[in-house]
Design a protein around this nucleic acid. Structure first.
Lengths: 350, 350
DNA sequence: GTGAAAGCGCTAACAC
DNA sequence: GTGTTAGCGCTTTCAC
């Protein structure tokens, strides 16, 4: 016997349900029909001013609030937007980058009629998430995955407006999803060029996982700049975006025994991890080795020395994703791809 | 003319609404009544095994997903839990502590039938939030405010199950809200005692805002321990939980010209901020001054030297809050107050 | 401009 | 155990 479609029975009993004023009560009080109240509530213009006024008063007096369930049942619109976060990503929720995106989404939505439905996609039961999303329970979805390359949710696009954070792993997967991101290649290139400009010559890299677009692209940006300058395009090690992995990668780099006077890490956490490894060898930052991060979050700001990094507008990223999705739902024309600007922020580690 | 109850008209037009299989279609296909399908879907036991099986097949074949709106309209239960975050708190969303709570909430909910409705309470229009919450749109609410003392949402408790993060500012406000938190006083006391035990004698404090319970209680814990040991209960400065304020507070402390060989900060960010001020004076950590934080987040872990701190189970805090709320909604007995354990984590700054 | 009436998809008595 | 019958509170044609 398989489990029911819903894994748990609905809560029964419990807190008392108190009666809420209904649209019908408002209509009665204002002496009009329910249809008219509905029109007023929804801001339809085709209602006489005096009637509108009367309805408004009735609404205020009764403290009427429209019932969302009834509304969406009748209108076939939920006014709900899902923010899908794969479980593995949720684990690293502590990553300030994700937290910022969520903040951006929530704050943008606060000024709309939409409601934010944040859901953790438990990877062991993808069906649950898929069903929920496709079951007409939301008007659109935002997908924020650390493994954003795997646009395994792309198939959703056929039945639901969907916007991703970051580019898909394979450029034209599924004919192109809607997404919002930054130009990682160019951003990292610029960071490296700035380092060259400041006299650094042997610039190493601590890359992110090579199955994620940001990991891939930032490495590419570094390599292009380094190779163009006649440097060593193999002077890099891979980490997994955690501080520990950054420290390990730096140790391996240092163990190579080749000269290194700068290192660019694919995120701030790894950059700060690199600090540890650099100091273990008795080297100084930035005197012996300059360090540059990526993201520009609290970790880099509070590091010692404060981290030079590539700023990426993460709160805005969340807001823009949401804006794109809302337009998509409304049927307004939107660009498939939105690239936000990054900025090289020089602090004291370079 | 005032604005409509809903500040924006519902999205109209836009993405095509495709027809979803309904319970009725499942019933027809399985050759039973809608009521029976409903029973199967909701896991009622009173359905014969073979019929249950037939319904299940029909559900799978049709790829049926129950419509939440219809369900809650009929059942008077929304299966939605609101996570309310005041706007001012959202600004500091970057604070890993909040991010962790949100993670805990979302992950706990992932295993239930509830849906997480994260909403930013725009402080300039509190009515919007209040109305939404009281309008029968959610089954319960979780309130996470940085200014958690101000349980200004406490009135909601009369119409909705509500659980807060942290104690209210005034202990018995409103006859006592449900909340989940830690014992800040005891936790900070212990930190100070550990410092005394390790030979520190002049222990200063960088307190948090004195209009928030955590700010108040951690200062109290410090003061009690210090005064008992014959120390100076006035050797503290106040910050606002940001790194900068921590640095400033530390400078003021140092400017007093009295001996200080340790400082406990009310959170990790301020502790790391204190690092800066201490080093400006050419002092070493921990040799000259030991530093202890509070929270145990990524900022302290990646600091140099790694920060000794008081661990507070923030992800669990979110999960437990949610658990309490879910039980409350279900009418199960729950303790009004739940205190989670903290732990002194010794690293290299002490 | 406004009202009447017919559902939206589901649950919950109540019969059988 | 299973089916019948009412709605849940709202939007939305379609008349007037």
């Amino acid at each position: 016997m398989t489990e029911p479609v819903d894994s748990a029975p609905p809560a029964t009993g419990g807190h008392p349900v108190i009666a809420m004023p209904t649209l019908e009560m408002v209509a009665a009080r204002a002496g009009v029909s329910r249809a008219t109240v509905s029109r007023v509530v929804n801001g339809s213009t085709k209602v006489a001013d005096d009637i509108t006024e009367a309805v408004r008063s009735a609404i205020d007096e009764l403290n009427y609030v429209p019932n969302r369930a009834a509304r969406s049942l009748a209108s076939r619109h939920t006014q709900v937007i899902a923010l899908v976060i794969p479980e593995s990503t949720a684990m690293v929720f502590a990553d300030p980058f994700f937290a910022s995106i969520v903040q951006g989404v929530a704050m943008y939505l606060a000024n709309t009629e939409y409601t934010l439905n944040m859901l953790i996609a438990v990877e062991s039961k993808p069906e649950k998430t898929r069903r929920y999303l496709m079951g007409g329970n939301v008007d659109g979805a935002l997908i924020v995955s650390h493994h954003s390359g795997d646009h395994s949710w792309a198939h959703l696009e056929r039945s639901l407006p969907v916007v991703f954070a970051g580019r898909p792993l394979r450029p034209d997967e599924d004919g192109g999803s809607y997404y919002v991101g930054v130009d990682d290649v160019a951003a990292e290139r610029e960071a490296v060029e700035q380092l060259f400009r400041r006299g650094r010559r042997a610039i190493a890299a601590i890359a992110g996982p090579q199955d994620m677009p940001p990991g891939l692209d930032r490495l590419r940006g570094w390599r292009e700049a380094v190779v163009e300058a006649g440097g060593d395009g193999d002077l890099f090690e891979i980490g997994d975006f955690t501080p520990e992995s950054g420290a390990d990668a730096m140790r391996r780099l240092l163990d190579r025994g080749v000269a290194i006077d700068a290192v660019v890490a694919a995120n701030d956490q790894m950059a700060v991890g690199a600090y540890v490894a650099i100091r273990e060898r008795g080297l100084r930052i930035p005197d012996d080795i300059a360090v540059v991060g990526f993201d520009d979050n609290v970790v880099g700001k509070t590091a010692h020395p404060p981290l030079t990094t590539v700023h990426q507008p993460s709160v805005e990223l969340g807001a823009v994703m949401t804006e794109v999705l809302v337009k998509l739902i409304a049927g307004e024309p939107v660009e498939k791809v939105t690239i936000l600007p990054t900025r090289f922020v020089e602090r004291n580690s370079s």
